[in-house]
Amino acid sequence: MTANRAIGGIILNNPVVQVRNLETTFQTRLGPFRAVNQISYDIYKGETLGIVGESGCGKSVTSFSLMRLIEKPGKITNGQVLLKGRDLLKLSESEMEEVRGGEMAMIFQEPMTALNPVLTIGRQLDEQIMRHKKVNQKESRERAIEMLSLVGIPSPAERYTAYPHQLSGGMRQRAMIAMALSCDPTFLIADEPTTALDVTIQAQILELIQNLQEKFHMSVQFITHDLGVISEISDRVMVMYGGKTCEVATTSELFLNPRHPYTHALISSRPKLGTRVDRLQTIEGSVPAPHELPPGCPFYNRCPRAKTECMNHQPPLQEIKAGHQIACFNPV
């Protein structure tokens, strides 16, 4: 794969993150379960890649694998994660600690529980700033307050000494973002950062992430199960199902011209504004249990277009046109 490419008129160069054949396995009582199964993708400089999929499709495990924060009984069993050309999976634990929260930061789903309740917001920011930057307590405090004001927290100097429970959910998520961006990361992973917030706050947070991304020229991996959020924030989208990649395309291409039967079904199941229907369209069946996944395409048992070959052979991820890849033998 070439490093520089043009997709839909946008010139993308310098892949910041290159994930190759990533495989994360959980040892369960029913045998090994591949939560992430041989996935590969790139994220370019300044770009937002949205990863979408339903619960249990492996999107969060992918993020945690990139951060190397997979807990037992899980383990990264194969692949490469290159951040600016350096394979993170080959780093020692202490080298990885340098990367986490420094070059690569992450924000989480639950702002209510993701902050430590017994430490002040300031203390939690300082901890990270002083870990990665050669600054003293006073400089760190200045940086922390600067970050808090940057993410739109009113009277940041006062909030610096506040505890998480004294802030609203939206403010806490802003504080989380301030923390994540405090050490100028080149790559940010946002794991459903708006799921726990109500819709108006959600819109504010999305806008904030977009503004900050432009300001800091970050690459963002944005994870969500919300197609609306994805369409708003991402440049390109990767659709995941059963630990595998189904389809990768630019956002407009994916929504206008979905080719994988799963993506197609997902997009058609969204209610459309201005049309009345008795029943919303759904995808028949449910996600198979890990040990029931067929050897071939994971979507096989729910796919309206499935053929026998789909059951036994995993369709490879292939480029069907510039920047649009799908893993399907019988695309829509």
Binding site: E93, E97, G101, F108
Partner: peptide
């Protein structure tokens, strides 16, 4: 708790996470 994961994601060392958080 979730904040343990956050602390790890900040790049803190294992023992700082264990004792400090």
């Amino acid at each position: 708790n979730d904040y343990i994961r956050t602390a790890k994601a900040k790049g803190l060392s294992y023992w700082t996470v264990v004792w400090g958080h």
